[in-house]
Amino acid sequence: MDTALGAPPLFAVDEITKTFRSRQSLWDRLRGQPLPIVRALNGVTLEVARGETLGIVGESGCGKSTLARCLVRLYDVDEGRIRFEGGDVSTLKGQARRQFNRRVQMIFQDPFGSLNPRMTVGQILGEALRVHRMRPAAEIALRMQELLDLVRLPPDSLDRRPHAFSGGQRQRIGIARALALEPDCLVADELVSALDVSVQAQVVNLLLDLQSQLDLTILFVAHDLRLVRHISHRVAVMYLGQVVEVAPAEALFSNPRHPYTRSLLQAVPSLDPTQRRAQAAVLGELPSPLAIPSGCAFHPRCPHAIDRCRQERPRLRRGQGSGEAACHLADSLPAWRNEAPA
């Protein structure tokens, strides 16, 4: 299977699952109830090509952050494999893991929690450079200035602590810290969702500039569909711990093939009063990840569901168009009317 750019994939994620144990009341334990298990990732399959920006979207709780954390080895996967340049990285430890993380870095969502409040920017960047021996000691000061320059922070930032910076500046410190290791791949988990809209654009555009400058592969996890459409080459849509559709961004937004993607796009509010809708985009409530429906996880909410959907889990497969969708009916759904310009 090749990807959009026709090159061998940088990341190949194969059917990974990740569960978390939930709390159980003493009464339930005494009654011998099984321990409730949250299925955060439920068989995710995904490929990431070198140099591309892959957007990962989905509503809260769909597992997109868990996927991001599995990719950077913050979580161990329960089943399945993650391959990086062909080698299995799902169980890396110690020195090998450090080498892997040198090349795959993460930028965090919370600009307040992701920086140590007691370390200056210089200490944060300097530590990264020293621990990984990125530069000889004499060149570290110079390199730190380069990094500040790269993320467009003022050159006198080094001896200041995070509290002296705004949210957008802190995210740029986070980016500089990741770039200190000269990684091949950045995983950005909700990079700008905590920022003001005006600042979001600055940070996102910085990231795009850096990508072309440094030839980065970026996994951009977000729930903002417009933003993802703007920056991604390809987009993966997640629902209840599975990837339900992957396609080049334009194809996905102009001709979504999975009913869930369609309802997601319909749910985007429009400023045009003629596009007022009376009908809800999707049926019912999001099921609990403690009890994921059988067959296709989306079937209880899907207006097109047939018996087969309740029994057999659809795999991602190619059909008409350029993407892949995990839906038995992907090729027989009614044509998509582009009601809501996303």
Binding site: R97, R98, V131
Partner: peptide, 17 residues
């Protein structure tokens, strides 16, 4: 549990550090 602890792990720092 704060993100900067996870950031340290992603940076490849050791547990003691």
């Amino acid at each position: 549990r704060l993100d900067y602890a996870d950031a340290g792990r992603v940076m490849g720092y050791g547990d003691m550090r």
